Computed example of a mutant assay.
Amino acid sequence: MASDVVIRPARAEDEREISELLRSAWSRVSEPGPERPADAAVFDERHPVENFLVAERERRIVGYIAHAPASPLESNRHVRHVQGLAVLGSARGSGIGQALVEAVCAAARAGGARRMTLRVLGHNRPARRLYLRCGFTVVGVLPEEFLLDGAYVDDVWMSRSLSGPHEPAQP
């Protein structure tokens, strides 16, 4: 990762920049849902600001990652789930995505989590390669889960242990 990038916890005043990043990064390759309205809140009850990390370069947010408990069950509190990840188009390929994934895994581990999970669209090959590099493995696939622009797309579930060192997989 570029040495001029800082990963830090998000702050309430970051909401506008994160919203702009989300809108600029939206595509059918990475999102099964509709494009976000410009005035849609980023931080809310399901997505509190303390669950976000941002990548900042020259005081500008160039990436973010959000995580949350995998479910509201106490018996599942040891599992965290990646709720979203985006990197500004001009900053992609510089290691920011990997740094954000590793930082969120470290934060989850520090909070007592033992496992991190996520979902990724089957046709999003760059994201799948990133997660494999970060030690995630495919634990399930829901075939043809989404109909996007006339094509059926798989929903790929991935998971990574946080309780020990991991060996990055080769894409």
Score class of each variant (00 low, 15 high):
Q98D: 09
R114V: 04
H78Q: 11
A113F: 06
Q98F: 08
A107H: 14
V79E: 02
G95M: 06
A99M: 07
A99E: 09
A107N: 14
L73A: 09
S94P: 02
C105S: 14
A91L: 01
I96T: 10
L100E: 12
L73C: 12
A110L: 13
V104C: 12
G89N: 08
V87Y: 01
A107S: 13
G89Q: 13
S90W: 02
V101D: 08
A91T: 00
V87D: 00
H81E: 11
H78T: 04
R77A: 15
S94E: 15
G111L: 03
G89T: 11
R115C: 07
P72C: 04
G97N: 06
Q83V: 03
L88I: 01
R109P: 04
A106E: 13
I96G: 01
V82S: 01
R115N: 05
I96W: 04
H78L: 02
N76L: 10
G89R: 15
R114K: 10
T117P: 03
M116W: 10
V82C: 14
V79H: 04
A91F: 00
A103E: 13
S75T: 08
G95F: 08
V101L: 07
V82P: 03
L73K: 13
G93A: 07
P72A: 08
G84M: 02
G89K: 07
G84E: 00
S71I: 03
S75R: 12
A86T: 00
G89V: 06
L88N: 06
P72R: 14
S75D: 11
A106M: 06
A113M: 12
A110D: 15
V101I: 14
R92Q: 15
E102K: 09
A86D: 01
G111Q: 10
G112N: 07
H78R: 04
A103Y: 13
A110G: 15
L88D: 15
N76G: 12
I96P: 05
S71A: 09
R114G: 09
S94D: 10
S71D: 07
S90Q: 13
R115H: 05
